[in-house]
Amino acid sequence: MSISIPCFPDGLFHAVAEQESASPWRGRGRMTPPASTGSPPPDNRQHIDARLMQRVAQGDRQAYGDLYDRFSGPLLGAAQLILRDSAEAQDVMHDAFVTIWEKATTFEVGRGSAFSWAVTLVRNRAIDRVRMRRRRAELLADSVLSDLGYAEVATESTGSESAALGDDARAVRAAVATLPAEQKRALELAFFGGLTQEEIARKLSEPLGTVKARIRRGLLKLRESLALRP
């Protein structure tokens, strides 16, 4: 499976600070116990991640190193796919992990997985950089929108993935592969392309309502598929 990821049009993203202020982990103090949300208990991997995050919040550098080893591969891959620049992707990774160290105390287990939080931090920074890059490119190119290139989305696990995350990656890719092509395309554009709803609709030449419905159905089906995995 492969998709093409467009560049990020102008004015797409909220500021990083705005994104983070909207995150469910803001302003919770250090290590509040998990809130009851009615959702199923996290699996072993999420539990291990949560425990590591708790230890990081207590200043445990060993746990921090472990968390880095677990997350850095997929996070750097996602950052690189969004930015298409390895050096910038590493800068984003650096900033995100420093933020994890600083803000670990605000993480709440019941407000989502540690991996999800880390993904949000990396993605927001990557998209923000793309936006700033596009600002410069637009100025130079006389505000002509142009694609900066395309990247391939992986369908198979790579040898560089850790064994544990490799299982997750395989499960996610298998679940995404079961989605209808139009739902998959909309989700990929929304996640990696960082486009607005209207821009996704224009990119796909579909009505806005259709794109919204595809994102909703795709995400719900993906959640259902991932919940059913062994």
Partner: peptide, 21 residues
């Protein structure tokens, strides 16, 4: 929203993992 955020975050796995230097 929380569960869908976790689900959307899982989309990061679609990118090929890159070993950090």
């Amino acid at each position: 929203v929380l569960s869908l955020r976790d689900t959307s975050a899982a989309l990061a796995h679609l990118a090929p993992a890159v070993p950090p230097p």
